[in-house]
Each structure stands twice: as structure tokens, then as C-alpha cells.
């Protein structure tokens, strides 16, 4: 009994230390970037003032300029997701430790590296290659989707029931046949759900790519804010929020149905 109490005390000690270290890091960070308490105190008033500029939204600008830009963001996200899905499916199978132990390491390294790049850094490199515009953005989104979808896909494949795989191989089927008839049917619903979720994330990612000239609605927002056209910026925000909410709802519902089967 005494041993258990001791262990309990140690864990409380660990949590206290962690809290203390985080608090110290926080205070140091606030001091380092000059985020003083006075500045924090002025913040609410400042926010209210700025919010006032945003009203009323210039919806005419919204229909003419913002909607096409949002459509372009959706197109970028769609093509990016398709690129990610096509390339990640074989990689996810190869990256499954239980199926291909030899390849899994290499695949894991590739996916970790592509995931570490923020999309916008990839876009910085693609813009000079294929020129300013949405195509560069789609490639950037595609590459970073490959990394993430490969990782998630491999985890799904690793968690399958191996009975069917052994059954196919016992009946004389090849590895390829086992993949087609034993692995894919088990993993596809979850993998497709990951594709859809990634599409939702890609819409947000593609929305910011305009900042580096890779198409989409981000560039419009940056320009309206830069030239202090707050009513136009408000139109960008309202339309983005509404459209992304709608896509989230539809995609979330489809995901739930696919998973339920």
C-alpha cells in the first residue's frame, strides 16, 4: 500500500513540474515578443474597433470576385486530394509493416519528410517552376497530401484481420490477389473516409496559398486587408465561412455513412 501511495505522489510531482516549466516558458515567451499585460488589456477595445470597420460587408464584391476565388480554392483542394489519393494508395500498402516489412521503413521516411513541409513552403518552390497560379497550389497540396494519407493508410492496413489474407494465399493466390481480395475490401471504407477528411483540410490549406501567389481566396483576403477595404474583406470571410461549413457538413455526413457501411 505504501508503495502505491509513493507512486501516486511521484506522478503528482511530475505534473506539477510540467506545469511549472510550461508556465515559465510561457512567461519568457510573452516577455520575449513584447506581449505586455497592458497590451493584453487594450486588446478587447481594439478588437471591437476593428470589427466595426468590417460592417457592413460588400456583398456585391463577394459575388463578383470572391466566389470565383473560393471556387478556385475548392478546385485546388480537389485536384490536390486526387493526386494524394492516387499516389498514397500503393504507398500505404507498401508502407504497412505487417505486409511488406522491407519497404515500410523507406515509405515511412518519405511520408514523414513530405508531411514536415508546410504546404505553403512547397508552393513557394512550385510557383517558380510552373508559374504563378492555381496549378502550383494544386501540386503543393497534392505532395503534402501524399505524405499524410500514406501514414494514415498504412496504419489502417496494419490493423486489418489477417485471416482473409492467409486464406487467399493458402488457396494458392499470389500477393497481388491477396491485396485485391483480402486487403483492399477491408481497408477501403476507412481509407476513403481519410480522403474525404483530407479534402476538408485541403480546402483550408488551399485557401491560404494565395498569399504566395498560388491561386485561391487567400490572395484576395490579403489584398483587401492590405488596402484597408474592410467591407470587401468581410465579404471574403463571410463567404469562406459559409461555404467551408457547408462542405464540412456534407463531407462529414458521407464519412459517417461510409464508416458505418
Amino acid at each position: 500500500m505504501s508503495e502505491r501511495r509513493l507512486r501516486g505522489q511521484q506522478r503528482i510531482g511530475g505534473a506539477t513540474w510540467a506545469t511549472f516549466i510550461i508556465a515559465a516558458l510561457f512567461v519568457w515567451s510573452m516577455w520575449a515578443i513584447g506581449f505586455s499585460p497592458e497590451r493584453l488589456g487594450k486588446l478587447p477595445a481594439q478588437m471591437v474597433e476593428v470589427l466595426g470597420f468590417f460592417w457592413p460587408a460588400d456583398m456585391a464584391y463577394g459575388w463578383d470576385k470572391v466566389l470565383p476565388a473560393i471556387a478556385e480554392s475548392i478546385q485546388i483542394a480537389w485536384i490536390g486530394t486526387i493526386i494524394g489519393a492516387i499516389f498514397s494508395l500503393p504507398l500505404a500498402l507498401l508502407g504497412a509493416r505487417t505486409l511488406f516489412p522491407k519497404f515500410a521503413r523507406v515509405v515511412k521516411l518519405i511520408s514523414a519528410t513530405t508531411r514536415a513541409f508546410p504546404e505553403i513552403l512547397l508552393a513557394i518552390y512550385f510557383v517558380p517552376i510552373v508559374g504563378l497560379g492555381a496549378f502550383a497550389g494544386a501540386l503543393a497540396i497534392g505532395i503534402s497530401s501524399i505524405g499524410m494519407l500514406t501514414k494514415l493508410g498504412s496504419e489502417v492496413v496494419d490493423s486489418i484481420d489477417f485471416g482473409p489474407v492467409e486464406a487467399v494465399e493458402a488457396a494458392g493466390g499470389s500477393r497481388i490477389l491477396a491485396l485485391r481480395y483480402a486487403v483492399l475490401p477491408q481497408v477501403l471504407p476507412e481509407i476513403i473516409a481519410h480522403w474525404l477528411f483530407r479534402f476538408e483540410l485541403n480546402i483550408r490549406a488551399s485557401a491560404v496559398l494565395g498569399v504566395v501567389g498560388a491561386g485561391g481566396v487567400g490572395g484576395v483576403l490579403l489584398n483587401t486587408l492590405r488596402y484597408r477595404h474592410f467591407d470587401k474583406a468581410a465579404a471574403v470571410l463571410v463567404l469562406t465561412i459559409l461555404i467551408v461549413l457547408a462542405i464540412d457538413m456534407v463531407s462529414g455526413e458521407i464519412r459517417r455513412r461510409i464508416i458505418r457501411g
Binding site: 513584447g34 487567400g218 470571410l237
Partner: peptide, 29 residues
């Protein structure tokens, strides 16, 4: 919560940079 989730990180950064001025404080917010 769902509305907060619709806007990407850099959109918030642009908005806060407009509200409190360019610099790390905008990024932290």
C-alpha cells in the same frame, strides 16, 4: 466551435495583423 474551425491559421494571422499591427503578437493571437 465549427465557425472557428472553418478559417485556416493564416487567415487569423492576417486578421490579427490588421487589428493589432504587424509582428509576433498578431501571430501569437
Amino acid at each position: 466551435m465549427n465557425v472557428l474551425r472553418t478559417l485556416p491559421d493564416l487567415f487569423w494571422a492576417m486578421l490579427f495583423a490588421t487589428a493589432v499591427g504587424f509582428g509576433p503578437v498578431a501571430g501569437a493571437l
